[in-house]
Design a protein around this nucleic acid. Structure first.
Lengths: 198, 198
DNA sequence: CGTCTATTTGAATGTACTCAAAAGCGGTGG
DNA sequence: CCACCGCTTTTGAGTACATTCAAATAGACG
C-alpha cells in the first residue's frame, strides 16, 4: 500500500465507518482517487461551472457558498478535515451550478471524479450504500438547519452553531459565521457582544 | 398482478423513473408494501415517536411539520400524490423524531417499513441506488430552499413557491403556505394583497 | 343555523438591515 | 522593524421588514 499517499488512510477510515471493504475493493477505491493541494483563498469551484468532482478534505478547510443578486454571500457548508463537499446539484444534473467552493487556508483534498464514482457504484455496490448514507446525514443536517432558520432568533442560531461546531467557532472569521447563520457581519458583531455580556 | 392494488402501478412508475426492475424484482418489491387509508386531518406520525416507515402518497396530500418551543408549526414538506415522505432523521437513527405528519384531506399511502427497506436493499441492490437518487434530489431541493430563506424577502419566497408548486398554491390553506415560506399568517395575508395589486 | 377555524385589517413593537465612519489587525514591502 | 495598505470588526443612527396582539370578518362543517 506504500504506493498511495498517507491521506488515503483517512478517507478509508471515513468510508469504513459505514461499509467494510476487502483488500481488492480498497485497491479499486484507491485507484480512482486523486490528491490536490490548494493555496489559501483559492477558488476551487466557481458558480456557472459544471461540477465533476466530490472533494474529501484531508488538510485545512473549505467553504461552499452562493452569491445572491445583491452580491451577498451565503455559506452553505464548511468542510474541515474528514468532511466531504461538492456541488451536488451540478454533480447530479451535470448542469452549471450555483456553488462556489473556496479554501479558508492552504488545504489538501482527495478528489473523486463523477465518472469514477459511477464506475465505483458498478464495481463495488457498497459505495452506493456509503453515499446514500452520507447524503441521508447531510439531508438530516440540512433539514435541521432549515427548521432552525425558520424558528430561532439569530442569537439562538449562533448558540446552536457554537454547540455544533466548537472547533470552528474560534477558527473562522466572524463574517463567515454570520453568513452561515444568516445575518449581516454588523449585526453579528452587535449580537455577539450582547451574547457574551451574559 | 391482479393480486395487488391499482395504486401499486403508481409507485412502480415512480421507481421506474430511476431504476428498471424485472418481473421478479417487482414481485419482491410489491410483496413488502402495504396500503393505508387516512381520514382528513389525521395525524400519521407524531413528534417523539420513532419512525418506522416511509410513505408514498397515492391519494390526497400530506404535510410534514415541526413544532417549536413557542408552539408554532413549521412546514418542512408537502407530499401530494406521487411523493415520498418520512421522518428521515428518526428513520435512520431509530430515535424519537421531531416531525409530525398529517393529512390535509382524506388520503391514501403505500407504506414501506424500514426493515422491509433494508431487506430490499439486500435482495435488490438497485433500490439502494433508487433511494440514493431521491435523497440526493431531496437534498438539492432543501439546499435551494435554505439559500432562498437566507437571501430572499418573504415576497420573493412566495413568488418562488408559486412557480415551483403551482398545483398547491390554490389548494393549500394560506396558513400552510405562510408556514412553509416562514412568515406569520397575518403578514402573509398583508403581503399577498400587496402582491396581487401589481 | 351556530360554532370553529381561517383570513383580514390595524396599531404598536421588535429584530435585523443599511449606510457611514472609526478602530483593529495582519501581512507586505521599503 | 516600522509604515502602510487592505480587510475585518466595531459602533451608531436611522430605517425596513416582519411580528405581536387585538378585533372584525369570512368561510367551512356538522
Amino acid at each position: 500500500m506504500a504506493k498511495y499517499p498517507d491521506s488515503f488512510q483517512l478517507i478509508l477510515q471515513n468510508v469504513s465507518r459505514h461499509i467494510s471493504l476487502n483488500a481488492e475493493e480498497i485497491e479499486r477505491f484507491f485507484s480512482v482517487l486523486h490528491v490536490k493541494k490548494y493555496k489559501n483563498k483559492q477558488l476551487i469551484l466557481s458558480e456557472g461551472e459544471i461540477c465533476y468532482n466530490t472533494w474529501f478534505v484531508t488538510k485545512g478547510c473549505l467553504r461552499g457558498y452562493t452569491t445572491d443578486q445583491n452580491g451577498f454571500e451565503h455559506v452553505l457548508s464548511f468542510a474541515p478535515v474528514d468532511w466531504w463537499i461538492g456541488d451536488i446539484y451540478s454533480l447530479i444534473s451535470q448542469k452549471p451550478g450555483t456553488l462556489n467552493i473556496e479554501t479558508l487556508e492552504a488545504s489538501e483534498a482527495i478528489l473523486l471524479h463523477r465518472e469514477h464514482q459511477e464506475l465505483l457504484y458498478a464495481d463495488v455496490p457498497k459505495f452506493e450504500r456509503f453515499f446514500r448514507i452520507i447524503i441521508e446525514k447531510s439531508l438530516v443536517h440540512n433539514q435541521q438547519r432549515l427548521i432552525e432558520n425558520l424558528s430561532l432568533s439569530a442569537e439562538d442560531r449562533y448558540e446552536k452553531f457554537c454547540l455544533r461546531y466548537p472547533q470552528l467557532v474560534n477558527y473562522l472569521p466572524q463574517k463567515q459565521i454570520a453568513s452561515y447563520i444568516g445575518v449581516t457581519p454588523e449585526f453579528f458583531s452587535k449580537m455577539k457582544s450582547r451574547f457574551y455580556k451574559k
